[in-house]
Simulated assay, not measured.
Amino acid sequence: MDSREALLRESFVPVAPVSRVMAAPQIEHRRLANSGLMCDLSTGARMSQACAVWNVKTNVCTIMTEPNAPDEVLGHEVRHCFEGHFH
């Protein structure tokens, strides 16, 4: 099983809203040709394809991906919006 298959088979049990960083965030998706660079600048970490950046004050989670990112990448980042940095 490759890493993509492992990601697809990973079980998902959401954290209770009371335990989340933002219980019910608004999610914004930005498709950017330079998402890797923008993610590096926003998070201070080296990201390969995408990232989720929280603004707790405005309750907005902004997801940045490449323009043609697969659905699995977007779904993974949505999970970060609700559960934080789980990996």
Rank of each mutant, 00 (worst) to 15 (best):
M1C: 04
M1V: 04
D2L: 04
D2V: 06
S3E: 08
S3H: 11
S3W: 14
R4E: 10
R4S: 10
E5R: 09
E5C: 14
A6H: 14
A6F: 14
L7F: 08
L8I: 07
L8Y: 09
R9H: 07
E10F: 03
S11A: 07
S11K: 15
F12G: 00
F12I: 03
F12A: 02
V13Y: 04
V13H: 11
V13G: 04
V13M: 08
V13A: 14
P14V: 04
P14N: 06
V15N: 01
A16D: 07
A16S: 11
A16H: 12
P17V: 09
V18Y: 05
V18S: 09
V18W: 03
V18N: 04
S19L: 12
R20S: 02
V21M: 08
V21K: 04
V21A: 11
M22K: 01
A23V: 09
A24T: 11
P25T: 06
Q26I: 07
I27M: 01
I27D: 00
I27Q: 00
E28Q: 13
R30C: 01
R31S: 07
R31C: 06
L32R: 15
L32M: 12
L32I: 01
L32K: 13
L32W: 02
A33G: 06
A33H: 12
A33I: 05
N34Q: 09
N34M: 03
S35P: 02
S35W: 00
L37P: 03
L37F: 05
M38H: 09
M38I: 10
M38R: 11
C39K: 00
D40L: 03
L41P: 03
L41S: 11
G44I: 02
G44A: 08
G44Q: 05
A45H: 14
M47E: 15
M47N: 09
M47F: 13
M47G: 02
M47Q: 14
M47D: 10
Q49C: 08
Q49V: 07
Q49L: 12
A50H: 01
A50G: 10
C51V: 04
C51T: 02
A52K: 02
A52L: 03
A52F: 01
A52R: 02
V53R: 02
W54S: 06
W54I: 05
N55Y: 11
N55G: 05
K57N: 14
T58E: 15
T58G: 04
V60F: 00
C61P: 05
T62D: 13
I63G: 00
I63W: 00
I63A: 02
I63K: 00
T65W: 04
T65E: 01
P67Y: 06
N68M: 13
P70Y: 10
D71K: 15
D71E: 12
E72F: 07
E72V: 15
E72R: 07
V73M: 14
L74T: 10
H76Y: 10
H76M: 09
E77F: 13
E77P: 00
E77M: 12
E77R: 01
V78A: 04
R79P: 08
R79C: 06
R79T: 13
R79M: 10
R79E: 14
H80K: 15
H80W: 09
C81M: 09
F82Y: 15
F82M: 09
E83T: 04
E83W: 04
E83C: 05
E83A: 08
G84Y: 08
H85V: 06
F86C: 08
F86H: 13
H87P: 13
H87K: 15
H87C: 08
H87G: 12
